[in-house]
């Protein structure tokens, strides 16, 4: 007897699930993911960031653009670099900043999230910068906030970290110029990396020449190729002729089960050492979203070496976050 399988119907997605990022006039209101921005908005953010970068080099590192606005950093997951650069970005725009580090109780997540939201809204906040361990948290908040509030995703679960991808795109554009002739390789723990997902969307939107991901089979999702990447499991083959190497942090805290034999084994195969760096183009730049695990995914001599632009990424992060904040809180001209 033939067995009939009944497949549950998949819920239909809205035509453009990321339309929520734009207001009725098509102006950027929330930044939740790179998807849906397109080359035009990404380029506009990078261009705007260029203007803001100069503010950080002045004696008085402040412009009055967002004076009187309140930005709330809503961090459900700990972070130092991202939170402080968002805080500095808001302060350099003269906004008032409130930092809330909310540790999560697993059982009451949904309820407490909305509750927290209403309470902060009652304080007349204008922007929420949200980091959450659950994918989709920023999107959820954007759907439920008061109409005047903008939401920026500062990292949600495995899903997205759009400002990190934008600052990486900014760094690449500044140091390498046009994206079309470039080969970019993202190396390491792709599977657990929201940064990698956002980078893939960003670089492909910007029409990068070739985008590669390099890592062990256990740390690269099976269905990643349709996103527009070439998959390599061998470092030497993957780094050949590459202009930009982006190392990712090995996210031990997100790993379940035996995805990796040992950190030593990972370092031997995929850790970026001076020797492996020689396999890329001689003028290749080395990037890392931080925090870097020295001796796990990157050798100290490479992280501190002449090809490393890791600290430049951090500085660029402030300008890019200023641009995103200012654009989301400005009206369309």
């Amino acid at each position: 007897m033939a067995v009939e399988f009944v497949r549950p119907k998949r819920p239909k997605l809205a035509a453009d699930p990321w339309a929520i990022q734009f207001d009725a006039n098509g102006h950027l209101k929330h930044l939740l993911t790179i998807e849906g921005l397109g080359a035009e908005w990404i380029t506009r953010i990078l261009d705007t960031a260029e203007g803001f970068m100069s503010v950080s080099n002045r004696e008085i590192k402040k412009v009055p653009l967002l004076r009187g606005r309140t930005v709330v950093n809503l961090f459900f997951e700990s972070s130092t670099r991202t939170r402080t650069t968002f805080e500095l970005a808001a302060k350099r725009l003269s906004a008032d900043v409130l930092n809330l580090n909310i540790s999560n109780s697993a059982t009451t997540k949904g309820e407490s999230l909305l509750d927290t939201l209403r309470n902060i809204e009652a304080m007349q906040a204008d922007m929420f910068v949200v980091r959450h361990e659950q994918s989709g948290a920023a999107h959820f908040i954007a759907r439920h906030v008061a109409p005047h509030v903008s939401v920026l995703n500062a990292g949600d679960g495995w899903h997205a970290h759009p400002t990190q991808a934008l600052l990486d795109a900014y760094t690449v554009r500044k140091l390498k110029g046009d994206f079309a002739p470039l080969r970019i390789a993202i190396v390491g723990d792709i599977k657990h990396s929201r940064v990698a997902r956002s980078q893939i969307h960003a670089f492909n939107s910007l029409n990068v020449g070739e985008l590669r991901v390099i890592g062990p089979r256990t740390l690269i999702p099976n269905d990643i190729e349709p996103l527009g990447v070439r998959v390599f499991h061998d470092m030497r083959a993957g780094l050949k002729d590459v202009d930009v190497i982006i190392m990712l942090r090995l996210q031990r805290e997100r790993m379940e089960g035996g995805l990796l034999p040992t950190e030593q084994e990972f370092y031997r195969l995929y850790g970026l050492t001076e020797e492996k760096l020689d396999w890329a183009k001689p003028d290749a730049i080395v990037m890392h979203p931080g925090p870097a695990n020295r001796g796990v995914e990157i050798e100290s001599r490479v992280a501190d070496g002449p090809q490393s632009v890791i600290l430049e990424q951090v500085s660029n992060g402030i300008g890019v976050r200023m641009a995103v904040m200012a654009l989301c809180m400005s009206a369309e001209s």
Partner: peptide, 20 residues
């Protein structure tokens, strides 16, 4: 651009040549 008082109504000009 970053000092204008009509930022609320006119928005931010996309390409901002920085002050020098």
């Amino acid at each position: 651009t970053f000092y204008r008082d009509d930022f609320d109504t006119l928005g931010l000009h996309p390409q901002v040549t920085p002050s020098q």
